[in-house]
């Protein structure tokens, strides 16, 4: 396993947000975490990235324990995150936003190549490369956020609600991009409220309910699960 989350707990002001959550992510493919608002999906990703401290349990990445590392050190190990709400830098240009993703990289020539690669993949960002990021549409901002994370040349990509607030046609485009990323050899952890989309993309899925994993299994199986159908797929 590339990433192993073992029995972690997270407390916010004494209240448990995660109760003994364990999740495993293999070296390829997409693992999704679905669940309702407040189930602890984002908290899980925040814990992996070192933004939120865990109160017990362990997180291992590629054979090393990472749960005590600060966020910048987690990025240095190869884990990039596209946070909930995109969190692009509003007063930096599109190009500057993308370049911050490569902050820790020292291979300048390869960074330029990767930036060109991002612009090939997202032609709309190329047109807007000198624009302030805050002037972009929601879908374009999501592309900046994903492009920024890819500029880190990650070994694992965490995506938190990439479909949030986007029009259906834009969501399809984001889905295509996620497939492309995985096809290029970068495994993805996808957190989504849009369970239909997530189960359609992922190989394996975890269902989080009030801070615990209530179900997990192959996406195809969960898609047919009666509880998942009723609670998350609206059928």
């Amino acid at each position: 396993m590339l990433l192993e989350i073992r029995d972690i707990q997270v407390h916010y002001n004494g209240v448990a947000a995660l109760k003994r959550v364990s999740i495993e992510v293999p070296v390829d493919g997409i693992v999704t975490i679905i669940g309702a608002n407040g189930a602890g999906k984002s908290t899980t990703l925040r814990a992996v990235s070192g933004l939120t401290a865990i109160s017990s349990g362990e997180i291992w990445f590629d054979g090393a324990r990472i749960d005590t590392l600060p966020p910048d050190k987690v990025v240095a190990r190869g884990i990039a995150q596209v946070p909930e709400g995109r969190r692009i830098f509003p007063d930096l240009t599109v190009e500057e936003n993308l370049r911050t993703g490569a902050y820790l990289r020292t291979d300048a020539a390869a960074v330029e190549r990767d930036l060109d690669g991002i612009f090939v993949r997202f032609p709309r960002l190329k047109e807007r490369r000198r624009q302030w990021a805050k002037t972009l549409s929601g879908g374009e901002q999501q592309m900046v956020a994903i492009g920024r994370a890819l500029m880190a040349k990650p070994r694992l990509l965490l995506l938190d609600e990439p479909s949030m607030g986007l029009a259906p046609v834009v969501i399809l485009e984001i889905a295509r991009i996620i497939k492309e990323i995985v096809a290029n050899g970068v495994p993805v952890v996808l957190v989504e409220q849009n369970a239909e989309l997530a189960l359609g993309l992922a190989n394996y899925a975890y269902v989080l309910e009030t801070g615990t994993v209530s179900l997990h299994g192959a996406s195809r199986d969960l898609h047919e699960n009666e509880h998942v159908k009723r609670a998350y797929l609206g059928v």
């Binding site: 933004l51 990025v75 830098f89 007063d91 930096l92 500057e96 911050t100 902050y103 994370a149």
Partner: peptide, 18 residues
């Protein structure tokens, strides 16, 4: 540059390895 990024969004900056 990193300083400007931090001033705009500290957590997002940390997620870039800053």
């Amino acid at each position: 540059w990193a300083m400007r990024a931090c001033a705009q969004d500290r957590e997002a900056a940390a997620l870039q390895g800053i």
